[in-house]
Computed example of a mutant assay.
Amino acid sequence: MTMMLKLLAGAAMAVAAMAAAGSAEAKGTDKAIVLVHGGFVDGSGWEGVYTILKKDGYDVTIVQNPTISLKGDVAATRAAIHAQTKPVILVGHSYGGAVITESGTDPQVAALVYITAFAPDQGESVAKLTSNPAPGAPVPPIVPPVDGFLALDKAKFVASFAADVKPDLARFMADSQVPWGLDALNGAITEPAWKSRPSWYLVATDDRMIPVDVQRMMARRAGARTADHAGSHAIYVSQPAAVAKFIEAAASQTR
Rank of each mutant, 00 (worst) to 15 (best):
M1S: 15
M1W: 13
M1V: 13
M1L: 14
L7V: 11
A9G: 07
M13S: 12
A14G: 07
A14D: 05
V15S: 13
V15E: 10
A19T: 15
A19N: 13
A19Y: 13
G22K: 13
E25S: 15
T29W: 15
K31N: 12
A32Q: 08
L35Y: 05
L35E: 00
G38C: 05
F40A: 04
F40K: 00
V41Y: 05
G43P: 10
S44D: 13
S44W: 11
W46D: 02
T51V: 11
L53R: 09
L53Q: 08
K54D: 06
D59S: 14
V60A: 06
V60P: 03
I62N: 05
I62R: 11
N65L: 09
L70D: 00
L70H: 00
K71D: 14
V74C: 08
A75T: 12
R78Y: 03
R78Q: 15
A79R: 13
I81N: 03
I81Q: 05
Q84H: 13
P87F: 11
I89T: 04
I89F: 05
V91Q: 04
S94H: 05
Y95W: 12
Y95L: 00
Y95G: 00
A98N: 03
V99P: 03
V99R: 02
T101F: 05
T105Q: 03
D106E: 11
Q108W: 02
V109N: 01
V109S: 01
V109Q: 02
V109R: 02
A111W: 00
A111Y: 03
Y114W: 03
Y114C: 02
T116Y: 06
V126Q: 01
L129M: 13
S131D: 08
A134M: 10
P135Q: 06
G136K: 07
P138N: 09
V139P: 00
P140C: 07
V143G: 02
V143W: 01
D147E: 14
G148Q: 12
A151S: 14
K154H: 09
A155C: 09
K156G: 05
K156S: 10
F157M: 04
A159N: 09
F161Q: 10
A162E: 04
K166G: 06
D168F: 09
D168P: 12
F172R: 10
F172L: 10
S176N: 14
V178Q: 10
P179Y: 10
P179W: 11
P179K: 12
W180F: 15
L182C: 08
D183N: 12
L185V: 09
L185Q: 08
G187V: 02
A188E: 15
A188I: 12
T190M: 10
T190F: 05
T190L: 13
E191S: 15
K195W: 10
S199G: 11
V203D: 00
A204Q: 06
D207S: 06
M209V: 14
I210Y: 01
P211L: 08
Q215W: 01
R216T: 00
R216M: 03
A219I: 06
R221Y: 03
G223R: 00
G223I: 02
A224F: 06
T226L: 07
H233R: 02
I235L: 07
V237H: 07
I247G: 11
I247W: 08
I247N: 04
T254I: 07
T254A: 07
R255D: 14
